[in-house]
Design a protein around this nucleic acid. Sequence first.
DNA 1: CAAACGTGGCC
DNA 2: TGGCCAAGTTT
Length: 342
Amino acid sequence: MPLVPADVPALRAALLDWYDAHARPLVWRTTGGVRPDPYRVWLSEVMLQQTTTVHAAPYFEAFTARWPTVSDLAAAADAEVMAAWAGLGYYARARNLLACARAVARDHGGVFPDTEAGLLALPGVGPYTAAAVAAIAFGRPANVVDGNVERVMARLFAVGTPLPAAKPELRRLAASLVADDRPGDWAQALMDLGATVCRPGRPLCHACPLTVRCAAFASGTPERWPLKAPKTERPRRHGVAWVLRDGQGRVALVRRPEKGLLGGMLGLPTSDWGPAVAEAPPPAAADWRDAGAVEHVFTHFALTLTVRTGQGRGDFLWSAPDEARTALPTVFRKALERGLAG
DNA sequence: CAAACGTGGCC
DNA sequence: TGGCCAAGTTT
């Protein structure tokens, strides 16, 4: 049952009080009501897209140490930024990150737009990130809706529509709770609650400041929300990756096309990846030896990559193994380790 | 608009 | 161990 307007201030106060006591000390956060640097807010929000805080934190520290301002990042070389992003996943984010930094430097004098609409126009900034930066960095009362907020709303109001169809309704419910008071803290409080208390599984309702008004808690089975539509199955693909070494032990790498899977990243030479195991022409003449296989799971398919090793030459980017390890996406780092071991 | 797009931790 | 899930955006 929806809250009546008179209930909203009490619910807001309960959650903001909880946040004052339990906010997570994340490295991109400020304390004492200090408004954070928009560059750091934006960078953290992009890194946090579909990514856990634990995974993003060391990357955030490395990026801000190396590129302290958006203008520093805008001036960086593409290959440096892509290599620094290696392992964090969703590499389109890194390409858009650079495009965004350069747009801010070139079109906005190195200053981030301070409105949701202005932010939304930037590359890699969608509805969530625009709202989050507007609220956290600029104190705008934006409706910040991520997966956490959706789950909290679905439970608070026991929404009967399954995701993803419920998204518009969950967004409206979240909007009904937004106010001018402490917009950035409100957004982060909702997300912290979702991440630490109103978790997907085994929610900690005993520690929740909102149980008094929570329909899912009242039902006795809060973990039943949000309802979800059945998922489609994940296909398996097969391919070959070649670990080619020259006389000095360097490894042959290629720069992948800008678009598509692992776009713009360094990679090992590979065959196409298809539904069946297939023979594929190697990228160079060598005494190829089988080195086993590695498994890797992407969002929309699982991959079995057969690894073959050999020594030879050719038109590649030749890289020392230690350098390659740090610059490669995880799937190729795994294949490289297999090739070097076997 | 449904599909593409990474990775690692958890149970 | 395999599915689920994490501060989404783009096309």
